Simulated scan of single mutants.
Amino acid sequence: MARSAPIALLAAAMLAACPAVRADGLRPYVVVGDAIPVSLTGTNGDATRGRALIVERSSTCILCHSGPFPEQAFQGDLAPNLAGSGNRWSEGQLRLRLVDAAHLNPATIMPSYYRVDGLSRVGNAWRGKPILSAEQIEDIVAYLVTLRD
């Protein structure tokens, strides 16, 4: 824990030097190791909204992942079960996996939900736009960290 404090301070200082929103409409972030330690919005997300986004098929999470969603009859089996996510990954690690999973694994099939550059096979309706907003990313992270079992 003592080691993460200087990293978080460094990331916060780096973000403070950046403009609030980039030219492409995305908020800047800093990857530190295998995580984005600082919230994209500067605030915590809402776990209730995050759960709703995960089970909503349009966000695509539930198409590949399964988890503690008993009301969902058809859950994915292509990706890790989301149960226990809060034990396996830190908030910052979860954030990077949502923002740009390809940063960690270039061969991943998981979409980069908050990246618009350097992507291939992007539908015309989505070119130049993130799949999820910064607020939605933070909501999903807020929910995933609660999954401890």
Rank of each mutant, 00 (worst) to 15 (best):
S58H: 07
S58E: 11
S58Q: 09
S58K: 13
S59M: 00
S59H: 02
S59N: 06
S59C: 01
S59P: 02
S59R: 00
S59Q: 01
T60L: 06
T60R: 08
C61P: 02
I62Q: 00
I62P: 04
I62V: 14
I62F: 02
L63W: 08
L63F: 08
C64Y: 12
C64G: 14
H65K: 12
H65I: 09
H65P: 12
H65C: 13
H65T: 10
H65G: 08
S66F: 02
S66V: 01
G67L: 05
G67V: 05
G67Y: 06
G67W: 09
G67T: 05
P68D: 15
P68T: 12
P68N: 15
F69I: 03
F69V: 04
F69P: 11
P70V: 06
P70S: 07
P70T: 05
P70W: 01
P70M: 04
P70A: 08
E71Y: 00
E71A: 07
E71V: 00
Q72F: 00
Q72G: 00
A73I: 05
A73V: 08
A73R: 10
A73T: 06
A73G: 08
F74Q: 15
F74S: 13
F74P: 02
F74K: 14
Q75G: 01
Q75T: 02
Q75Y: 03
Q75M: 06
G76C: 06
G76R: 07
D77A: 05
D77Q: 06
L78H: 10
L78C: 13
A79T: 03
P80E: 07
P80W: 04
N81R: 08
N81P: 07
N81Y: 04
N81Q: 03
N81D: 15
N81M: 01
L82Y: 11
L82D: 15
L82I: 04
L82R: 08
L82N: 12
A83F: 01
A83G: 15
G84R: 12
G84E: 04
S85D: 14
S85N: 14
S85C: 09
S85F: 07
G86A: 09
N87A: 15
N87F: 08
N87V: 14
R88V: 00
R88K: 13
R88T: 03
R88W: 02
R88P: 04
R88L: 05
W89M: 15
W89T: 08
W89H: 15
W89V: 13
S90R: 06
S90L: 03
S90E: 02
S90K: 04
E91Q: 15
E91C: 07
E91I: 01
G92Y: 01
G92P: 04
G92S: 05
G92R: 01
G92H: 02
Q93Y: 09
Q93C: 10
L94A: 05
L94N: 03
L94Y: 07
L94V: 11
R95P: 10
R95K: 06
R95Y: 07
L96Y: 10
L96H: 14
L96M: 12
R97M: 13
R97H: 13
R97N: 14
